[in-house]
Nucleic acid binder design. Structure first.
Lengths: 130, 130
DNA sequence: ATATTTGCAAATAATTTGCACGTAA
DNA sequence: TTACGTGCAAATTATTTGCAAATAT
């Protein structure tokens, strides 16, 4: 027993390589396109499975963009933080925000709402793109 | 000229009626299911078109949920505010948050990031559900 | 009248799945 | 070996579109 998965295969390495290439979110189609450009043939379904696999391992974060497409990015365990996404290059910066605790209090006071979780994203221009 | 659309049709009234029924987000499928339950026959494509139409008119807000499904809710012009979504009943409460201005400043100072827009959502239990 | 809206069926797009074959350990 | 991974093609799901018929103004 103690069946642990984890085979280091070429397709997986290449897919992870694409994510490692830039700190931004990639859709399965983008990863696949990138690999094709590198003359690496991988099935699109494998890209989907691998991205989901990375997420299960906690190595990647998922984000459903406003068109409904799922995108992934390498992202540390993420002790709660938020993302600032550049509209120019897509680069993502982590934003720690402890001030959120205050929101939680006012939410309870003003709305009687008990906070379990929250998401925040900021869009704009990173230092390099503006 | 001055071609203005806007026909008050029965399907549109019924679809709007569903949204009016609860202050929460509905997917096209949910609206359609609801109407079917009310013995109102409307094409699913009409639901899609009508929801999108309501959004264009500024009467409804769209939200792509974590599964990638588009959902809509009636929502006032929305002088910038955020949503507190109940995990129990889905009810949505508006959360005004002027404190965000402060975030904008620290973002610029800490990351050199110029903020254009942002989104925030809070999940938890509303007063009625906890 | 006539411009807009609807229903229906077919087309897309993103994602998932079944399965025979390939491969890491 | 043999359990896990991959490719491929077919199946799902959510959403969109073309077009003739229905409807609001």
């Amino acid at each position: 027993m103690a069946t642990r998965s984890e085979y280091a295969t070429r397709p997986r390495e290449r897919i992870a390589g694409v994510l490692r290439g830039a700190r931004r979110f990639f859709s399965a189609a983008e990863v696949h396109r990138e690999l094709t450009a590198q003359h690496v043939r991988v099935a699109l379904s494998t890209v989907y499975r691998t991205l989901e696999h990375l997420r299960e391992k906690g190595e990647a974060t998922i984000r459903v963009d406003d068109t409904g497409e799922a995108t992934y990015m390498f992202c540390e365990p993420a002790q709660h933080h938020h993302h600032a996404i550049c509209n120019g290059c897509g680069r993502v910066e982590d934003v720690d925000c402890s001030a959120v605790e205050q929101f939680a209090d006012s939410l309870r006071n003003l709305h009687g709402f008990l906070l379990d979780a929250h998401t925040m994203e900021f869009y704009g221009r990173c230092a390099a793109c503006r």
